[in-house]
Simulated scan of single mutants.
Amino acid sequence: MRDLSHPIADGMQVYPGDPAVHIESALEFERDGAAVTRLELGSHTGTHVDAPAHTVAGGRTMQQVSLDELVGEALVLHVVGLGDGARYGLVELEAEGPLPERVPQIVVIDTGWAKHFGTSRALRHPALEAEAARELMRRGMRVLGVDTLSPDPTAAEGTTEFSVHAVVLGGDGLIVENLTGLDGLPARASVGIFPLRLGDDGAPVRAVAFDD
């Protein structure tokens, strides 16, 4: 089994404008007889899932998302050689071969950008073209996973451009952001994305790829 999630740590990188992550001891074993940690973080911390309610007024919340949607076969697309701020679409997604006419409900895109998580370069990640997201949805995708802060562009002050979010979340799909460990995964992999049981706009997840 391969872990596809970033660890949650005090002061870790978050999407610009999101709540900062604070982790500290609340109870100590020597003093209190038990150890308990206090957590302060946003619902979109680290590797996480976006529910439609994240950017769609009246959209489905995490309370309405079933685990069945987030577990199963995934199409893994490795897109290499992209530069800072690059846009990529169907041409780049098909660099290793044409996409099948019907894709699994989970599609994961590996840009290699996970290695920059926690640095300023993470903000300059490649971004998916909305038309490519629309085509993946037409072919059966319902969960889009990326190894970047967002499938849309990110600026240091955040962004108001959410065209891929509009396509995927607007189509009642889900987006998983900040995946890691995707390099070397085969084109078809069994994955599980397990969110905390929060009921609103999104939730941190533990994502894994299962051994065949």
Rank of each mutant, 00 (worst) to 15 (best):
1 M>W: 01
2 R>M: 01
2 R>G: 01
3 D>C: 12
4 L>C: 03
6 H>A: 13
7 P>N: 03
8 I>K: 02
11 G>I: 08
13 Q>E: 13
16 P>G: 02
19 P>K: 02
21 V>H: 09
21 V>P: 11
22 H>K: 14
24 E>G: 14
24 E>Y: 11
24 E>M: 04
25 S>W: 01
25 S>V: 15
25 S>T: 15
27 L>R: 15
28 E>W: 00
28 E>G: 07
31 R>N: 07
38 R>A: 14
40 E>H: 14
42 G>Y: 01
43 S>D: 06
43 S>H: 11
44 H>E: 10
45 T>H: 01
47 T>W: 06
48 H>M: 05
50 D>M: 11
50 D>P: 03
50 D>F: 14
50 D>I: 00
51 A>M: 03
51 A>R: 02
53 A>K: 09
54 H>N: 12
55 T>Y: 11
56 V>N: 07
56 V>C: 07
57 A>S: 09
59 G>P: 05
59 G>Y: 03
59 G>Q: 01
60 R>Q: 07
61 T>E: 08
62 M>H: 06
64 Q>T: 05
64 Q>G: 10
65 V>K: 08
66 S>E: 10
66 S>H: 09
66 S>M: 04
67 L>F: 04
69 E>Q: 15
70 L>K: 06
72 G>P: 08
73 E>A: 13
75 L>A: 08
75 L>V: 10
78 H>E: 11
78 H>C: 04
80 V>E: 13
82 L>W: 08
82 L>P: 14
82 L>N: 07
84 D>C: 06
87 R>M: 12
89 G>E: 07
90 L>S: 00
92 E>K: 05
92 E>A: 15
94 E>T: 12
95 A>C: 01
97 G>Y: 05
98 P>I: 06
100 P>I: 00
100 P>N: 00
103 V>M: 04
108 V>K: 02
109 I>P: 09
111 T>M: 05
112 G>K: 05
117 F>R: 13
118 G>M: 04
119 T>E: 06
120 S>I: 03
121 R>Q: 13
122 A>M: 11
123 L>V: 13
123 L>E: 09
123 L>Y: 14
123 L>Q: 02
123 L>K: 03
125 H>E: 12
126 P>L: 07
128 L>G: 05
128 L>H: 08
129 E>V: 02
131 E>C: 01
133 A>C: 02
135 E>Q: 12
136 L>C: 10
138 R>H: 12
139 R>G: 12
140 G>N: 04
142 R>H: 13
142 R>T: 11
149 L>H: 10
150 S>L: 09
151 P>S: 11
154 T>Q: 07
156 A>K: 07
156 A>N: 06
157 E>Y: 12
158 G>M: 02
159 T>W: 10
160 T>Y: 04
160 T>L: 12
161 E>M: 04
161 E>N: 14
161 E>S: 14
163 S>Y: 05
164 V>Y: 04
164 V>M: 04
165 H>Y: 03
166 A>S: 15
167 V>D: 08
168 V>N: 02
170 G>P: 00
171 G>A: 09
172 D>P: 02
177 E>A: 15
179 L>W: 01
180 T>C: 15
181 G>D: 02
182 L>W: 09
188 R>K: 12
189 A>S: 15
189 A>R: 13
189 A>C: 12
190 S>D: 15
193 I>Y: 08
194 F>K: 05
194 F>Q: 09
195 P>Y: 06
198 L>Y: 14
199 G>V: 06
201 D>P: 00
209 A>M: 01
211 D>W: 00
